[in-house]
């Protein structure tokens, strides 16, 4: 299925504080877009708005040519898979890795062909019986990615998946994302606050600062700017 994301002139207020101002974003089907910005710039808020978690003040959001209304939120979410920035649980929480994967297939993952494929591809077999809370950051992210991919999304929203991973774990994670992206031609919005963590496949980078988009273009163009670190983070 072909699917685009269109955000037009989006304004968002939360607890009467302005969080996003005049956001415009267009993603064609199969685009890999990175949203870069310092902490608190509103990156997560954009993704959550796309998930329909917030009531927007002004502006329009269209997903696969369908505009968000009050009554189609659950329906639109079916097309989107979202990996939140934070899903901390107590390490003794009674949920196994297998249970996490099964959240999106509703059957035993060992009996599900697609699940088994992705479990093998992501090397999750040995983790299935382990408590999810006891996995490392990298293992958790891999499991979550497998789970959300099993929903067969057309859009993938990844919120700072690099946050709790060391360099190697992140490199491996990104490889998986890139492979899936090449194979399935998903539309990906990838959020990060680290300039060095932008995928080479990312066609476009948006830089967000205090709720506004201050740059939109290719990754290389950022580095051409003078004082680009100050430009982004200051």
């Amino acid at each position: 299925m072909s699917c685009t994301i269109e955000i037009e002139n989006l304004h968002l207020k939360l607890s009467s504080k302005v969080i996003l101002k005049n956001i415009n974003l267009k993603a064609e089907h199969g685009d890999f877009i990175t949203i870069l910005g310092p902490n608190g710039s509103g990156k997560t808020s954009i993704l959550k708005t796309l998930m329909g978690f917030y009531k927007i003040d002004k502006g329009k959001i269209k997903i696969c040519d369908e505009t968000y209304e009050n009554n189609n939120t659950l329906n639109l979410r079916k097309k989107i898979s979202y990996l939140p920035q934070n899903y901390e649980i107590d390490k003794f929480f009674p949920i196994l890795t297998k249970d996490i994967i099964e959240l999106s297939i509703n059957e035993n993952c060992l009996k599900n062909k697609r699940a088994m494929e992705i479990i093998n591809e992501f090397n999750l077999m040995d983790l299935l019986k382990k408590p999810f809370g006891l996995l490392s950051g990298g293992e958790k992210q891999k499991t979550m990615l497998a789970m959300i991919l099993l929903r067969d999304p057309v859009i993938l929203l990844l919120d700072e998946p690099n946050l709790n991973l060391d360099m190697l774990a992140y490199k491996n994670f990104l490889k998986l994302v890139e492979k899936i992206y090449m194979e399935k031609k998903l539309t990906i919005l990838f959020v990060t606050h680290l300039l060095t963590h932008i995928s080479d496949l990312s066609k476009k980078v948006l830089i967000l600062k205090a709720g506004k988009i201050i740059f939109s273009g290719k990754k290389e163009e950022i580095f051409k700017k003078e004082n680009y670190i100050e430009f982004i983070y200051d």
Binding site: M51, Y82, P84, I95, I148
Partner: peptide, 12 residues
């Protein structure tokens, strides 16, 4: 839901 409400919501 017990795992994470936001994730539950995102799963529809």
């Amino acid at each position: 839901i017990l795992f994470n409400r936001e994730i539950a919501a995102s799963l529809g």
